[in-house]
Amino acid sequence: MSVLSVLFFTFIRIGLGAFGGGLATIPFIHHELVVSHAWLTEREFAEVVSLAQMTPGPVAVNAATYVGYRLAGFAGSLTATIAVVAAPLALVSAAAWLLSRASGRTKTWAERVQRALRPVVAAMLFGAFWMVVRPLTKDWRLWLFTLVFFGISRFSPFRKYPQLLLVAAGTAGTILL
């Protein structure tokens, strides 16, 4: 199979498995990109996630664009990005259409399913947190940096404008680390 085919089918799988939002899918994306295909190292993956968080758009789309470009240039970038978006878009469109025609009982069932999924999504977010934090275990300075910026993030200007926190952390990291 060509690189573009492998990219396409890998990112279709990631797109279809991306339940729970961007951060919740990080462990799944990690498995595909680091474990299954070894396209990225642990450290590179953590950097991709950090970069994907800083740029506009979902984590999976940004990761697809980056990895696709890295493996096959512009064509790979385009292929991976389309693949990660196409299947979920089709599924959500079909689900929205079905729910718009649903009766009262079906809508109640759908609301119950959504409530039941919230704890699962929370667990997935904790898993994503660990995937991003795990590479920090080798350097105590990164743990300290993480704790300091977590504390700073609780203050008003940074809660309203997290972009300021990203700029501050990037500047401090460049100077201190």
Rank of each mutant, 00 (worst) to 15 (best):
L144N: 09
Y161T: 10
I26V: 15
F129A: 14
F45W: 03
E111G: 09
V167E: 10
G170M: 12
R141N: 09
V148N: 00
A123V: 01
F74V: 01
V34E: 11
R13N: 10
A63G: 10
A102Y: 11
F129T: 15
L78N: 03
V61H: 04
L136Y: 11
L176C: 13
T146H: 01
G20I: 06
R115M: 09
A87P: 04
A95D: 00
L99W: 06
V84T: 13
F158C: 06
L33P: 07
L166W: 01
L177G: 11
R134Y: 04
V92Y: 07
T171D: 00
L98Q: 14
G17Y: 00
H37F: 03
Q163C: 11
G173T: 06
G22R: 02
L125P: 04
A95S: 01
F145M: 14
A86T: 14
F158I: 03
P88C: 05
M1S: 13
P27T: 07
G151Y: 04
V85K: 02
F8W: 09
D139L: 12
F126D: 07
L164Q: 03
R159D: 08
T41C: 05
L142E: 02
L177P: 06
G151L: 05
I82W: 10
A80P: 00
F9P: 06
G170D: 13
E111R: 15
G22E: 02
T65A: 13
A122M: 09
G76C: 10
A122R: 04
K107L: 12
P135G: 11
L164S: 08
V48Y: 04
